[in-house]
Write a protein that binds this DNA or RNA. Structure first.
Lengths: 242, 242
DNA sequence: TCGCTCATCTGGTATAGACCAGTTTGACGA
DNA sequence: TCGTCAAACTGGTCTATACCAGATGAGCGA
């Protein structure tokens, strides 16, 4: 992306503070996952108050340059994970391939039924049995997304008995002989609200990216519908068409 | 997306205000492009201060439910434009097809050279001649994106003389016989900073989506590299793979 | 050595003001 | 009737302060 044009002294104070900190990040003085000085100390350093300092920090957070860890402080954001939704099937493989450490936790598994919203998304009938799987996934120890996975219980009998802390894609292939083919992906930026915000451990209102993915097998049968809530600074999406 | 779970009275005040306003929007009491009451009036209504009220408004803004117009007030966001980057070539056609009114303004056209950053993105050599075209695009009178388009000046001689307030894709096809084929798309959520923020007419720090698109013709030759800065609440992206 | 407690540090939420800079509107005058 | 201009109103920025709740780490005791 282009650099911000230099602007003279009429720049608001909170943007001057932003520019100072952004400069230190870009120059590498502050490296990924480094903690910034506390808000009170920054306020004193720049001769202003916490409120104004927080404006500057919120700005950097919105740009994806820093993130906060609940009541522990502000940290420099690591590089974004490159995510190719049309190619990547395995979160773990993708994270590992980029030299980072993935982790997946299953939050809960529930047997339920398709509601009207899910029915329109998947082509199921309202009331069809589905398994709802909620997982949290981390990169280098930082939670970056939570996901709700709706599985076609008719097509995948007994799937709720397996271990979900591994690649779902491999499970489907090895246990059910399913090869995922077609995908319909939809995404837009939004803020994370509860319950997803607390599941990731961020405050409500943190910027995020909402991604849904509907997968089918080779015959066009519905297999799984995936709803992902990402931290907005954690990923960069790439799509190639030819 | 899922609804936020109901939480009891320990909810912070600014989230209660958020929920009240969000309810009015969801129920249709407040309709798209309606102005909200002013911050001072909302503060009085909810028995709190402007700072807290602004927290609630910022939260709704982050969710994409409302947007602000500089010193004119807060407004309810219209529906997101559905954008299929792999299929859609024409902004105008896409907006029109969704029953809305597009508008394109050319900000400036500059003859320049590929810098190292552009060279890696496009495959051009550093110093190769390019035309930089900056445009602003609106939906229903609201600016929703600015874009920097880098055109291959060698491949498209004299292109700087045309009218750019129309579809670039049609211009390329009709005047140069170019059919865009391959595309490499990259996008991530970030905040808009100057000069893009002022070009759209929002304050620096407004949430946005940064999209780049590199297009080639049928022979794989580089045609144009497009850098788009969208308001984050203005679009929903859809990608289909089979 | 290990576990617990508690002081201290962090950000999170909130109040109560102030002044500034664009936008809008309505009254006034030509 | 129409344009002008000033008042009123909007959000934008900022100060100064307060208290809360979760995270942390030092130190104490078993």
């Amino acid at each position: 992306m282009q650099q911000q044009a230099f602007v003279e002294g009429t720049l608001p104070l909170y943007l001057k503070v932003r520019d100072q900190l952004a400069g230190q990040i870009d120059k590498g003085v502050l490296t990924p996952n480094t903690r910034l000085p506390s808000e009170r100390i920054l306020a004193e350093e720049y001769g202003t108050t916490r409120v104004t300092t927080r404006l500057a920090l919120a700005q950097l957070e919105a740009e994806g340059k820093i993130y906060r860890s609940n009541r522990r402080g502000w940290f420099v954001s690591p590089p974004r994970l490159i995510y190719k939704p049309t190619h990547d099937y395995s979160f773990s493989d993708n994270v590992t391939a980029q030299g980072r450490v993935p982790e997946t936790e299953t939050l809960d598994v529930t047997a339920t039924e398709a509601n009207p919203w899910l029915a329109t998304k998947t082509g199921l009938a309202v009331g069809d049995p589905v398994i709802l799987l909620r997982r949290r996934r981390q990169i280098d120890g930082r939670p970056v997304l939570v996901e709700n996975i709706y599985l076609n219980a008719t097509r995948l009998p007994g799937i709720e008995t397996y271990d979900f802390n591994r690649s779902l894609w491999k499970l489907l292939r090895e246990q059910y002989g399913v090869e995922l083919k077609g995908k319909r992906i939809e995404m837009y930026p939004t803020a994370l609200v509860d319950p997803q915000a607390s599941a990731i451990g961020v405050t409500a209102g943190t910027a995020g990216l909402y991604v849904t993915r509907c997968s089918q097998d080779g015959q066009g049968g519905f297999i799984e519908f995936d709803e992902e809530f990402w931290l907005h600074d954690a990923l960069s999406i790439q799509v190639e068409v030819s």
